[in-house]
Design a protein around this nucleic acid. Sequence first.
DNA 1: CGAAAGTGGACCGAAATGGTACGGTTTTCG
DNA 2: CGAAAACCGTACCATTTCGGTCCACTTTCG
Lengths: 149, 149
Amino acid sequence: MLRVSKLTDYATVVMTVLAEAGSEVLSAQVLAERARLEIPTVSKLLKQLVHSGLVESFRGVNGGYRLAREPAAISVAEIVVAMEGPIGMTECSVTSGLCDHEHHCGVRGNWQRINQAIAEALASVTLADMMKPPGPKRPVPTPLRVALA
Amino acid sequence: MLRVSKLTDYATVVMTVLAEAGSEVLSAQVLAERARLEIPTVSKLLKQLVHSGLVESFRGVNGGYRLAREPAAISVAEIVVAMEGPIGMTECSVTSGLCDHEHHCGVRGNWQRINQAIAEALASVTLADMMKPPGPKRPVPTPLRVALA
DNA sequence: CGAAAGTGGACCGAAATGGTACGGTTTTCG
DNA sequence: CGAAAACCGTACCATTTCGGTCCACTTTCG
């Protein structure tokens, strides 16, 4: 279905909650409540976000999590990469040498370009954008050429 | 990793082979040889492509497959949709009602916008584009910007 | 008729996903 | 100074999905 994993989805929600809390430090439990998710789940994804440097953690009593940067300085692409690794639509466009017919595969290079376009689309949306309500005005620049049903 | 499935990847390769053959009818076996894939695999994905109306099939001796439309009139998005179903980055942005906290999830609407941007990126590349070598000329038509707010 | 070719469906093993649990460590606070 | 609050790391398991294969059936053509 060409989708990000649920964990990535949850991660954006948790990050949004964090963004709304400003510089306040929130525990995994509070985060779970506000995001309406299970604590272990929140905990798990938070670890990955901390590892990627998107979130700061504080241990001990009254510890918790806080965004490492301003919401406007964190893109959705970074969250996706933190949760799923490098963005690449096809195996071979990420790692070369996996496919034994790379040399006569004219498709590879073109996929890499598509990857880039998608990465850019993801990179152009920041956490700050996700906090705003989805304005009913101009949806997307140009109408789609494909029926997506 | 945010990727399409291997079958989808293969589908683009097979479609490219078909595009290069013009109006000639090729059997699954020939297709498999040219694409360097196994016959059952090619067979399987061809079935889906026929179902979606992207490819025409002919039964019986000397039967085979042929593109249903001009390569320039078939987008990568259509191939992806044929193989994986609707493009949607998150479950809830495709089907509503799955997530019990849709009403207080401010993220949903924004994901839908991102979906559209990605669908557009995919829709802007045609099969004809995939046939060309990834020349340093026109990269991808227009790296789309997601209009938020 | 019979060989070639597509069609539909079933099947299976391997991998990814998603949840969950547990034991350990750090820090704060009474 | 010790207990509790939190985070940390890792491991585990059930479920689903994915990739791939196979087979019985149908259609077409010579």
